[in-house]
Design a protein around this nucleic acid. Structure first.
Lengths: 145, 145
DNA sequence: CATGTTCTTTAGCTTAACTCATTACTCTCG
DNA sequence: CGAGAGTAATGAGTTAAGCTAAAGAACATG
């Protein structure tokens, strides 16, 4: 249980908010792959982990409103990275599944990401990396809390 | 020096990217103060730390293009949170300083943020908070690297 | 001085989200 | 069984927050 009277928590929240906003701005432009927005990348990543999901589930995971996810899924489908099938039990829903092409592109983007990583490596020491690794799951938790 | 051959780094980068994008979307909506965008808040925070700065400096710190900062500063000025003075040595530049009103509003928003924090406190244990505190400065570094 | 460079600003555009409303389907309860 | 309530995806229009290109003013340097 965090000590709320401790000023450091408030300061950390401040600092996190600033850093997250600035970082997200950078990430928007520093795309590992042109032609694919960060949210689209994120959706592909989610699909890679979960296998397949309905648009609604994806919207909840990405913290985006359903209409936005409809649009994103449509774009991904147009790029051949995703397939839409009817839901087996509920004909209102659809099932979004990534194609083999998406796997190939994820692999390719993983390579590019490693290059970017190498660039960062020069500026962060091992202790800093360790902190990032440790915090990553907490940030994920925070993101969909 | 990070071990790039170690797959965990790539995974962590993936995870960080996703989490940062989702978090930034949440932060956009979960404003501690209506009527003030996250970037505007961030600028006020920077000014609180640095005293005062030129629009150009602010743009570099926030990783925003100069025209965007012009707009942001203009909005802050319209809300009476910031004052623009001529630069003492270079008449091309201006000096942005926060007003007493900004300090009051920062204090008020600090209170609201603590309430939000209290909400989160229930869902994070002390170890997780510790990781966030530890990672915050690294994220800041990353943000303006 | 003249030319080029830097800082801010203006104007117009793009993107990626949002809200509201609609359609299609499912579920529940009388 | 059928009517009304609820939920899923989507269509249309809007908004927000950044961007680029270009202009104007002030500085710096040959």
């Amino acid at each position: 249980m965090p000590d709320l009277s401790h000023g450091d928590d408030a300061a950390a929240v401040n600092s996190l908010r600033s850093a997250v906003m600035r970082l997200s701005r950078r990430l928007k432009h520093q795309r590992v792959d042109e032609s694919l927005s960060p949210t689209e990348m994120s959706v592909l990543g989610t699909l890679a982990r979960c296998g397949s999901a309905t648009p609604g589930e994806l919207a909840r995971k990405e913290h985006v409103q359903p209409p936005s996810m409809t649009r994103i899924v449509a774009l991904l489908e147009a790029k051949g990275l995703v397939r839409l099938d009817p839901h087996p039990e509920d004909r209102r829903q659809k099932v979004v599944t990534q194609t083999e092409r998406a796997e190939a592109m994820l692999e390719q983007s993983r390579r590019k990401r490693n290059a970017w990583l190498a660039g960062l490596a020069a500026d962060l020491d091992e202790d800093e990396w360790e902190r990032l690794r440790a915090a990553a799951p907490v940030l994920e938790k925070l993101a969909h809390l």
